[in-house]
C-alpha cells in the first residue's frame, strides 16, 4: 500500500515513507557533523516536487526539531560550549541582518544570483579542500608519531589572538580567547549565510575548528546549539511574512530527523576528530561538484520558476 499525505501549504501530496527516510538521513548528518543539512535537504525536496520557497522554510522548521534532539544528545556527552555558542549566536544574528541588507543592495544593482552561486561554489570548494587536506595530513602524522600535536610553532595567528583584549577561558572547549573572536567570526558567518541563503553550519564548523581551535566534538555540539536558535528565528519569520512553512511536511521530516540526530550523536562520538573532518570535507566537496555541474551542463528546460534562492 502506498502511503500518501496531502501537504496543504506545498499544495501537493507526498509519500510518507520517502519523506520519513529523507528525515532520518539528514538527521544523521546533523548529529554526526553539527550541520543543519539544509544544503542537502532543500534540493532533495525540490526534486520531489515541493516549491523551492516552501522546501526551504519547512526544512528550517524540521531543523529546529533535529537540532533540539542533537543538542540534547551532545549536551549529555559534554559537547556543548554554551558560552562560546551564545557569543557566536549574537554575532551570527547581527551578521545575518547585515547580510540581508547586502543582498537587497546586490539585487538592486544587478546580477546577484550569479554572485551568490559563485560564492557558494568557491566557499564550498575552499572549505572542503582545506579540511580534507589538513585532516589527511593530521591522520598521517598521528600514525607516524602518536599524538604529536603541532603546538610547537607559535604562529603569527596565535600571537595575534593572544594580544586581543578581553581574554577569557572557555572551559568546555579548553581554549582561552578574546570575546571579540567568536563575536567577530559570528558576524562573518552570519553575513555569508544570509547571502548564500543557508543556515551556515558547514561554514561555522570549519571556523570553530580552525579559527577558534575548538576540539571537533565540542564543535559539533556547539554548532547544533546555535543552529537551533537560528532556525527558530527563520521558521517564525517565514511563517509570519511568507506563509511558506508546511507544518505537515516539517512534522514528517521531524519524525525521521530527530531519530537520526540521536544515532548521529553516538556515531560522532565513536569517530575520531580527523575522520569526522575528512567525511564532512568529502560531503562538502560532493555538493560543490554537483553545484558546479549544474552550472556547466546545458539545462533540460530553459526556464525556471522565480522565487527559489
Amino acid at each position: 500500500m502506498l502511503w500518501h499525505l496531502y501537504l496543504p501549504i506545498a499544495g501537493s501530496s507526498i509519500n510518507v515513507l520517502l519523506i520519513f527516510s529523507l528525515g532520518i538521513l539528514v538527521g544523521l548528518l546533523s548529529g554526526i557533523f553539527g550541520v543543519g543539512g539544509g544544503f542537502l535537504m532543500t534540493p532533495l525536496l525540490i526534486m520531489i516536487g515541493i516549491p523551492p520557497t516552501v522546501a526551504a522554510a519547512s526544512d528550517s522548521n524540521q531543523i529546529v526539531g533535529a537540532s533540539t534532539s542533537g543538542t540534547l544528545a551532545h549536551y549529555r556527552l559534554g559537547n556543548v560550549d554554551f558560552k562560546m555558542g551564545i557569543l557566536l549566536l549574537i554575532g551570527g544574528v547581527t551578521g545575518g541582518t547585515v547580510g540581508v541588507q547586502i543582498i537587497k543592495i546586490l539585487r538592486a544593482v544587478g546580477n546577484a544570483d550569479f554572485l551568490i552561486k559563485i560564492t557558494y561554489v568557491l566557499m564550498l570548494g575552499f572549505v572542503g579542500s582545506y579540511m580534507f587536506i589538513e585532516s589527511l595530513q593530521a591522520l598521517r602524522k598521528k600514525k607516524a608519531a602518536q599524538e604529536a600535536h603541532p603546538v610547537a610553532k607559535e604562529s603569527r595567528y596565535a600571537r595575534m589572538l593572544s594580544k586581543l583584549p578581553w581574554q577569557t577561558d572557555f572551559e568546555t572547549s579548553g581554549v582561552r580567547l578574546s570575546v571579540l573572536m567568536p563575536l567577530g567570526l559570528g558576524v562573518f558567518v552570519g553575513i555569508l549565510a544570509a547571502i548564500m541563503g543557508v543556515g551556515g553550519g558547514f561554514i561555522m564548523v570549519p571556523v570553530m575548528v580552525y579559527l577558534l581551535r575548538m576540539p571537533m566534538h565540542v564543535v559539533v555540539g556547539t554548532s547544533l546549539f546555535q543552529i537551533l536558535f537560528t532556525c527558530i528565528d527563520v521558521t517564525i519569520m517565514q511563517a509570519y511574512s511568507n506563509h511558506t512553512v508546511d507544518f505537515v511536511l516539517a512534522l514528517l521530516l521531524l519524525l525521521g530527523s530527530t531519530l537520526g540526530a540521536q544515532f548521529g550523536a553516538k556515531i560522532s562520538k565513536k569517530l575520531g576528530g580527523d575522520q569526522l573532518k575528512i567525511l564532512l570535507a568529502s560531503i562538502v566537496l560532493l555538493v560543490m561538484v554537483k553545484m558546479l555541474l549544474s552550472l556547466l551542463l546545458t539545462p533540460h528546460i530553459m526556464v525556471a520558476y522565480k522565487g527559489g534562492h
Binding site: V64, T68, G70, Y240, T258
Partner: peptide, 21 residues
C-alpha cells in the same frame, strides 16, 4: 494567524526533539 502558526510549529518541533531525546 501566521505568527501563531510559526510559533506553534517551532514549539512542536522542539517538543518532538526533546521527547525523542
Amino acid at each position: 494567524h501566521g505568527a501563531l502558526y510559526g510559533l506553534l510549529a517551532t514549539i512542536i518541533a522542539i517538543a518532538a526533539g526533546l521527547l525523542i531525546g
